[in-house]
Each structure stands twice: as C-alpha cells, then as structure tokens.
Design a protein around this nucleic acid. Structure first.
Lengths: 349, 349
DNA sequence: CCCTATAAATGGAACGTTCCAATAAATCAA
DNA sequence: TTGATTTATTGGAACGTTCCATTTATAGGG
C-alpha cells in the first residue's frame, strides 16, 4: 500500500481540496483554521500515510526541537542513569533528545558532535570523554549552540557544569573512615587526566589533613576506573611496607574490584579492610558485603542539566550558572562495623 | 567571533571566490575539483566557521545517514551492551546512530518513533517496549523504512528479528539443573506479555518433559523482571507445600533478587538452593556466589543487527532473514557444587 | 444596500543544499 | 588554424516546509 514517493504537504492539500498553507497551519495546530477543515485535513494526512519532514521545516524555522546528549560510557549504569534523567525532562518539554555514546574516545566524540551539529541540534549536553582536548568544543561555542557539561568538566572551559560535589563527597567518606578508627588510608583508582579525580582526591587529602592523618600514612594508588583496576590497587596497597587498613575508591567499580581482590585473599571487606565507593550505583546496595558509597543522584543531576539547557535555549543565551549537586554518604557494610556501637552492645549484653 | 547568522555554502563561495556548486562539490570530496581550488575552499570553510546543514541536503538527497536505535531500557546494561554493539558497526560504516530510550513505555515509544521518522532516518533498529501494540510499526512499514527487531519480537509481526536462541538457552540451563539431581524445579519471573517469556519458559518445560520431571514437580512463578520481582518469586516458591530446590530465572536481575532473598533467610545460593540466571550480564561473574547464567552475547547480537540493517538499506529492501544467536551456559557457583565430583572427592579422601 | 471589520484560506518567496545541463578554459589532433 | 575532446566551473531548478502579504468569504453596522 506504500505509495512510491513519500507524501508531502501538497499531496495532502490535493487530497483534502485545500491549499498547502492550510495544511501547514493544521499541522501546527493553528487556531485560524475552521474545525471542520482541520478534520478534513487530518483525515487526508491519515489516508496518504504522511510523515512530517522536520528537516524541511527547520530550513525555515530558527530552532529545531532536538537536543543532543553525548555520553562517555553508556554501559556504565551511572551514566545511563544520567541520560535517563535528562530524557525525562526533555520528553515532558516536547523536545526530542538523541543520545550518542562516545565510548570514552575523543575521536569518536568529535565525530558525534559534528553529526549532531549538522543535524541542527538546539543544544548539547555532554559528559566529555576522557582525554578531550581543550579546544574540542570551540566550533560549537562559536556557532552559538548552547552546551552544558554534565558530571565531568574540562580543566579551563567556560562552559557551564552540572556536577556532584565531589570534593565534599570525598571529605565525608574519608571522615567516616577516620572516625571508624582507621589511621592508614588509601585512595584507590582514577588518573589525573580527569578533573573529577583531582576533586575527589583533593577531598580525601583535605580530610586527612584536618583530622590529623599525616602524609606518610596516606597512600594514593592511581589505576584504571574498573573492577580490574580496583583489584590491582588493592594488591599494590597490601604489598606496601605498612599497608593501609581502609580505602576510599575513585568510584564503585574500583571498589567492587578491591572487594573482589580481598575475597581472593580470604579477607573480608568491612571486617579486615574497609572499603568505600563513590557514585552509589544500584549494584552497591546488593553487593555482598553491601558497599558503603557516596551517593550522587545521577538521575537528579541529569534532570537539572536538562532544565538548565531548556532555560538556555529559551533565553537564547550560551551562558549559565554552574550547579553542584548535593551528595551524601550511604553507610553499609563494606566500611566495617561501627566500633562504638559494638562496644555499647557488648556492655549491655 | 561568531557571526550572527550562520554561514551557508554561499558565504563560503563568496569568501573563496567560487560558485556555490564548487563548494558543494568540495564538501562531497568530488575529484572533479582542481586541488588548489579545493584547498582554497576548505580554508574558507574553516574561516567562516561553517557547519554543514544536513537537513537541507536531505531535502535533495534520497537517503539520510542517520539510523535510529530504539531501546526499551538503557539502564539495563544488557540492552546498553546491545546498543554499543550496534554503534560500533554503524560508526565504522560512516552512519550516525541515534539512540533513544523508551523506558519500557509504549506511549513513549510511539513518540520516539514518530520523531525519528520525522528526522528522516534511513532505518530503525528496535527493541520493542513491553506491551507494544501489534500495529505500532505499521506507519513505518508503509513508509518503506527498513526496520529490524533486536532482542525482542512481536507476536505476529513480519519484521525481521535478531535475537538469541532463548528456547535452547532455557533447555541447556534446565538440563544442567536436572543433571545436578534436582527433581523439583521452578521458573522465576517474567510475564506472558513478552514473547521472550514464552520462549524461555517453553524451553524449561520441554527439558522437564524430556528428562522426566513430572508437571506436578514444576513450579512457574510469574513476576517482575527485577531484583524485587526475583525476591518475591523466591518467597512464593518456598511457601509452597513441597518447595522446589532449584530455579531457572527469567533473567539475571530476577536471579540476583532470588539470591538476595535466600541470603535474607540465611540460605546459601548453590548449597541450599540452585539458581540459574539468563543473559549473563557482567555482574553475574562478580556476584557472590557467582551466578550460573545463560550467555547471549548481546553486543554480538547488536553487531549482527546493525549489519543486517546496513544490508537492507543498501539493497533497498524492507525484508531480511531472522537471525537466532547462539547461546551457552556459563556454569558458576550459584547452581551448586557438582554432586558427582563431591562424591568422588570424598571417596578418594 | 454599501462599507468596514473579522475570519478563513491562499499564493509565493524564502530556507540551504544537490545535481543536471550548460559554459568556459585548456589540451589535443589534424 | 579549426574543431573535437577533456577538464573545471557554474547557474538554476528542484526538495518540503513556513510565514508574510493577499485575497476571498462571512458577518455586522448604519
């Protein structure tokens, strides 16, 4: 039943016995059209199996209704959540979000951004791939397309950022470990090409400083931000002359890796070595032992980023305030039993 | 430095002192242009910060270079893997894949499909949302846009499907459990509005049949395909008069839920109750105890689906062969120790 | 009844490309 | 030299919309 050439607004006009302008008006839901005419036109639209050509429309209209979301790693549920959060609000605003994955590859990212721009996106939300060069977004900025960074930032950029309070999260987690009585602490995973790394590590070091853990008792082990990386970090740490008794991990994946390595050595996370993660992915709660982690509410940040973007588009600006999202430490089993409580229980027993 | 109105091909032509046709030819990498002219034009393109308007181009060209991937749940790493697999091959083929998430919502799916069509996609790969109505893809089919289903299928549709061999996977898993000596088996999770459910359940029942597990000893518990659902299934099963000793779960999420419920009852998955999952997500390997699961290679299926789509586009057809992907059972700890081996070990001890 | 105000519908010129047909310039054969 | 051939370049007509400026139909006021 498919007519060979796809139907256009003119075919509808012919079918309904009106002009193309009338059809266009109906398509846009204009109130200028007599209801019966509109109905007639809508029927014709249905009959010919018309599909609206947004490309042609955008040739005339200033703005398109599509927004690009460029994500560095979609297989990481943490970033997938971010994307889903954004989608929710765009969807409600009648905007179509297209997601593209860069797989943490700057070259890929370049291509994806180019495509999105060519598609005429109204705005771009990006969680930049690791190793993104500083100038990667210049073309987009000069083109005047609004852009915001989510989750990650670039070292020197003036582009607005929506990200969690990494520094504070790390401080909270580190304080938690120190209060548990740990005196030799490690920071596991991550590498210095990520701004986030410096923020989290900075919080760790600051908390150590203020709570009196001397520099000699702090161990920083860089590593891949994966389970594998976490395992390696733990091995490195335990091989030290005076090994730490607790670690704050760059993210949950690293933490899971560290716990796995502990299990392989027949050590128990929590009892023998305290582990704290970062991001609080869904899995953290269900792991065994359950992982203490810094929750960042990625879906919420996604929503926030989307709102900022919508506002930027609406007000035709390319600037916006940064937004740092609240974090909170979710204490579970992997950071060990609460010593004070244990003592108390024993006393009452 | 951004000029107010965005630059067009004509601005470049003026800048470079050539005609718009020449610029167009350069943009398409035509060999008809004298190299020095091409260089001059490319310089002008750079100078004016030109961005190609693909919408305008598509108005003339028959095909666009964008393909839509519609995924039912991006936060499920299983489907995210699928998307990433597809992306890999599209990327290599110079096609731009745009991902959209339907969040398992048919209404959302409808909107997303409409948008994608309006955008003029060259093809569509869809993992349909649960509860998709049979006619949901009619408009797309009549428009002659190639479409393939990945992972999931619709009951009566003639649209080509790329999916794992669910039936065989379930047979393998069930046989495995029966060989371990289990005589009362359960099937956990899923609901009958999914074709996949019938395939997997069918395999389970068939294996029971052929290996002599009577119908009375088979327990089928429908439920949400989530951890929560899995927990509920386990509770239901253990409440039975003669509870099963092993379960094949609809997917890994259900299996994780079942294991969690076991732990809450101080039972151990593997030793006290055998659990087998389906899909073999990355997490399965790292769970404790590690989950025995049916591996389906979602990334590989994604790649396959992408190849099929490319071929359909190239040969301007809307039909293609179905493809069922190989599955294999990955045996880990959750399905329990091998009894034969145990006995042997004891004898030799 | 004509004149004006309002409502409904319409023609036509953009929008930024592609690509065919045509032109202009350079090369070659005789 | 002249015409034929090849090589580079170019104008102009689409493509499917939107939207402004008009036209046409309908109603109201005197």
């Amino acid at each position: 039943m498919a007519s060979r050439a796809k139907a256009t607004i003119l075919d509808i006009a012919r079918e309904a016995g009106v002009s193309k302008s009338t059809v266009s008006l109906v398509l846009q839901g204009s109130g200028l059209i007599r209801p019966e005419t509109a109905i007639k036109v809508r029927k014709a639209i249905e009959d010919v199996g018309y599909v609206y050509n947004r490309g042609a429309a955008n040739l005339r209209k200033a703005h398109s209704n599509v927004i690009g979301m460029v994500i560095n790693d979609l297989t990481n549920p943490f970033f997938a959540e971010l994307a889903v959060g954004m989608e929710r609000v765009f969807q409600a605003a009648g905007v179509v979000p297209f997601i593209a994955n860069t797989a943490e590859n700057p070259v890929r990212q370049e291509e994806v951004l180019k495509s999105l721009m060519e598609q005429g996106v109204a705005g771009l939300i990006v969680s930049p791939a690791r190793g993104t060069t500083p100038g990667a977004f210049r073309r987009i900025e000069t083109a005047g397309v609004p852009i915001v960074f989510a989750m990650r930032r670039l070292p020197d950029s003036r582009i607005p950022v929506i990200a969690p309070d990494n520094h504070r999260g790390a401080v909270l987690a580190t304080e938690h470990l120190i209060r548990k009585g740990h005196r030799r602490l490690a920071f596991f995973g991550g590498s210095s090409d990520l701004v986030v790394y410096h923020e989290r590590l900075g919080g760790f070091l600051e908390a150590c400083e203020t709570l009196g853990v001397p520099a000699a008792h702090r161990l920083v082990v860089e590593g891949e931000t994966s389970r594998k990386g976490g395992m390696a970090c733990l091995e490195t740490a335990l091989a030290a002359a005076e090994p730490p008794t607790a670690a704050l991990c760059f993210n949950d994946a690293v933490a899971f890796g560290a716990m796995l390595a502990l299990r392989r050595r027949n050590l128990e996370a929590g009892a023998d070595f305290a582990v704290v993660g970062f991001d609080d992915v869904a899995e953290a709660e269900h792991y065994s032992p359950a992982l203490t982690s810094v929750a960042v509410d990625s879906a919420g940040l996604g929503e926030r980023a989307a709102h900022v973007m919508l506002k930027m588009i609406q007000s035709r600006t390319t600037r916006a305030e940064d937004h740092v999202g609240a974090v909170n430490l979710v204490v579970r089993e992997s950071s060990g039993p609460d010593r004070n409580k244990q003592v108390g229980d024993a006393a009452w027993a």
